[in-house]
Amino acid sequence: MREPEGLYELTPHAEDVPTGIPLVAGLTGFADAGSAVQQLAEYLAETVDLVPIAVFDDDELLDYRARRPIIEFEEDHLTSFTPASLVLSLGRDEIGKPFLLLTGYEPDFQWNRFTAAVIGLLDRFGVTSTTWVQSVPMPVPHTRPMQVTVGGTRRDLIDSMSAWRPTTRVPSNVLHLLEYRLAEQERQVAEFVLLVPHYLSDTELPAAVSKGLEVVSAATGLLFPIDALRDRSRDFFARVDEQVAGNEELGALVKALEDRHDAYMAGNPLRSPLVDGEGEVPSADELAAELEKFLAIRRSHDDDA
Rank of each mutant, 00 (worst) to 15 (best):
D76Q: 14
D76K: 12
D76I: 11
H77D: 14
H77M: 14
S80K: 13
F81R: 05
P83C: 02
A84D: 08
A84R: 15
A84L: 15
S85H: 12
V87K: 04
L88H: 06
L88Y: 00
L88I: 09
S89A: 14
S89W: 01
S89M: 08
L90N: 07
L90P: 06
L90F: 05
G91W: 10
G91I: 07
G91F: 05
R92P: 07
D93V: 09
D93G: 09
I95P: 00
G96H: 08
G96A: 10
G96V: 10
G96P: 09
G96Q: 07
K97G: 10
K97H: 14
P98D: 12
T103S: 08
T103D: 10
T103Q: 15
T103Y: 06
G104R: 02
G104Y: 00
Y105C: 00
Y105S: 03
E106P: 01
P107A: 01
D108V: 01
D108T: 05
F109C: 08
F109T: 06
F109N: 11
F109R: 15
N112S: 13
R113E: 15
R113D: 15
R113V: 15
F114H: 06
T115Q: 06
A116V: 04
A117C: 06
I119W: 02
I119V: 14
I119N: 03
D123R: 10
R124C: 04
R124L: 07
R124Q: 13
F125I: 03
F125H: 02
F125L: 05
F125S: 01
G126Y: 03
V127D: 01
T131A: 00
W132M: 02
V133L: 07
V133Y: 03
S135F: 06
V136F: 12
P137G: 06
P139H: 02
P139S: 07
V140A: 12
V140D: 07
V140C: 05
V140M: 08
P141V: 12
P141K: 09
P141M: 10
H142I: 11
P145D: 02
M146P: 05
M146G: 07
V148K: 02
V148T: 09
T153D: 03
R155V: 13
R155L: 13
D156E: 12
L157R: 11
I158D: 02
I158E: 05
D159E: 15
S160L: 11
M161K: 08
M161G: 12
S162P: 08
S162A: 11
